[in-house]
């Protein structure tokens, strides 16, 4: 019975130690990854969207990395220190990944945004519709003026 109690107490101590270790690890992880990065949309049909993050330290030298794979092999980096948002625009079709770094340390989660532009058929349809309306408008005003003797 006594041995059972001792082994139970030992098990409790080990569990406590494990919890403490886990807590300490999490705290370190939170310290390293302390900016929550988010995107205004997951799918953009225009190639632009807004990235937002919480600024923890005004004096940090944050960099926003953009890559076309989640391995971040080939990156475009932008200095974003002091800012809490960035509007990204002009991207071609593809899936883009973003994360924040402070120096060489990753300090945010990774977010991904898919850019899929409208089809050319849709774009051409609206273009032609607009052109037709514009042409008709000019013709109507010219005809109306002639009729009214202006």
């Amino acid at each position: 019975m006594g041995g059972f109690i001792r082994s139970s107490l030992r098990a409790v101590k080990i569990r406590r130690l494990a919890w403490l270790l886990l807590l300490a690890t999490n705290t370190c992880l939170w310290a390293a990854e302390n900016s929550s990065l988010s995107a205004s949309t997951e799918l953009s049909n225009e190639g632009y969207f807004v990235l937002n993050w919480n600024v923890q330290d005004e004096d940090s030298s944050l960099t926003l990395q953009q890559a076309d794979s989640n391995q971040f092999d080939s990156i475009i980096a932008r200095e974003v220190a002091g800012s809490g948002a960035a509007t990204i625009s002009g991207l071609a079709d593809g899936r883009y990944h973003f994360r924040l770094l402070d120096g060489n340390q990753i300090v945010s989660n990774t977010v991904a945004v898919t850019v899929q532009h409208h089809s050319m058929a849709r774009a051409g349809g609206f273009f032609l519709l607009g052109l037709s309306l514009f042409s008709l408008l000019i013709a109507t005003i010219l005809h109306g003026n002639r009729q009214a003797g202006i």
Partner: peptide, 29 residues
């Protein structure tokens, strides 16, 4: 720089921008 980082801004076949052309004209009218 635009071609490297923001290629669509120079693309004359940018679909949303093509739709915008006459939309803006008619909006102004």
């Amino acid at each position: 720089d635009l071609q490297t980082e923001r290629p669509m801004l120079l693309d004359l076949l940018f679909p949303a921008a093509i739709m915008f052309l006459f939309n803006n004209l008619l909006f102004g009218v």
